[in-house]
């Protein structure tokens, strides 16, 4: 019992500790990066259970803000090879278990 309690606590600890957004790779300029990151966080928090809606929201907002043809992938596990326009890529982790890849290619 004690063991499981500890495990739960650890898990909670881990969740709490790993809740911040962590940018893994980006070539965006500072301002854009901050904005995109905040947008991702907002979307992921808003649609915590529905990655598709979150991705849709991010895509639409990015299209609005930085011009069209943005693509967004959100998921817990996936691999990808993409061609993106230079200075328009953001690959980040969020919430300890989500990976978000946002890029522009028209």
């Amino acid at each position: 019992m004690a063991d499981t309690g500890e495990g739960k606590k650890e898990e909670a600890d881990y969740k709490r500790l790993h809740s911040f957004p962590l940018i893994r790779h980006t070539d965006m300029p500072e301002e854009m990066r901050v904005e995109a990151m905040e947008l991702c966080v907002t979307a992921c928090e808003k649609y915590a259970t529905n990655n598709e809606s979150a991705a849709k929201m991010i895509k639409e907002m990015m299209d609005k803000k930085f011009g069209s043809s943005w693509h967004v992938v959100i998921g817990e596990g996936f691999g990808f090879e993409i061609t993106h326009e230079v200075k328009n890529l953001l690959y980040m982790f969020f919430g300890g278990s989500l990976a978000v890849c946002v890029w522009k290619c028209s």
């Binding site: 790993h18 893994r24 596990g77 993106h84 890029w103």
Partner: peptide, 24 residues
């Protein structure tokens, strides 16, 4: 044409975990 680049990565739970641990 706008300059383009390729980028590829794998996202899965253990990599995400490792990244967080490293950052912490």
């Amino acid at each position: 044409p706008t300059p383009c680049k390729n980028f590829s990565a794998n996202a899965n739970q253990w990599e995400i975990y490792d990244a967080y641990v490293e950052e912490l």
